[in-house]
Design a protein around this nucleic acid. Sequence first.
DNA 1: AACTCGGGGCC
DNA 2: GGCCCAGAGTT
Length: 343
Amino acid sequence: MQAPKPLRKALLDWYAHARRKLPWREQPSLYGTVVSEFMLQQTQVSTVLPYYDRWLKVFPDFASLAAASEVEVVKQWEGLGYYSRARNLQRLACEVTANGLPDTFDGWLALPGVGPYTAAAIVSIGLDLPHAVVDGNVVRVLTRLYAIESNFSNNASAVKSIAPLADALLAQESPGDFNQAVMELGATVCTKGQPSCVICPWRPYCKAAGRGDPSTFPRIQRRAVVQKSVQRIWLQTAAGLLMERIPDTAKRLAGHYELPLAESCQDFVSINKRPLVIKKRGIANESISEAIHACTLKSGVEPSSCLSAETDLQWIPIAQLESIQISGPHRRWIRGILGTANS
DNA sequence: AACTCGGGGCC
DNA sequence: GGCCCAGAGTT
């Protein structure tokens, strides 16, 4: 390995002037660090920014978050995805409010929603403890720096393989800045498609840049995408729009509302043959096509008789759509359809 | 080790 | 349209 010392200095000098002004950096606090790290799990900085600002206004500290209701917490998270993060963050707030803040890596790791990455980020940034983070950015930057040609079977094995390198490189005296600097480099310079090697502080040390093929790293096998298709209905009456509530016991989008599945309504609606619109969305390795069919009630059926305890169907007055939790794509689709209808 | 969990940005 | 993103929990 290249002597780590010049690499550390080059990176930290670059980070001192190139780092983006982000709210959790401008007004640093342990609470802000924890909130930002939860939001940033599998989510890009630009997406997180508005959520972070609003979150700190509504829940300014651990105690206020611990005291909030779960519905309120998930409502503030709406649209950000991976809702277990919100519930885990609140459980964490309850635990630290009751038992105090951990001061070790293992102490943070034991809290809900905190894995190896998040624990290392929190203790390095918030407590100056020397733990290296390994996320997607770090994997990309280090596999390029050393031109590691291993074909990793998945992301987890790449992280595991890169961890010792990250530990060896870590600047022990400023672990928080070093960790953020590597990730900042990955996010702004050593990007996936076309890295900006000419402005990279590690250009003189980078094996992949020297060879001219940095964008071919890391080499990680991706899972095949599974195609799925779903039929949904659009049924609007004087009572409002028919929506289906996803049970609290569901793993995905528990407690959220979506447009009803056609199979939940087949007993009482007539479905127009041609769908109103066909939308697509992705969830992890699934590509889901959702056809939305405009419907009418079968003759003689009253709106109230559509509702039953088994299906979780509810009439939502149009004016109240904003105040319930709706999955992000469905909220956009509904706005689009209502907007088209009104114009 | 494999699966599940959202949504948005980007080429 | 495919890929990726400051990952963690469950099985």
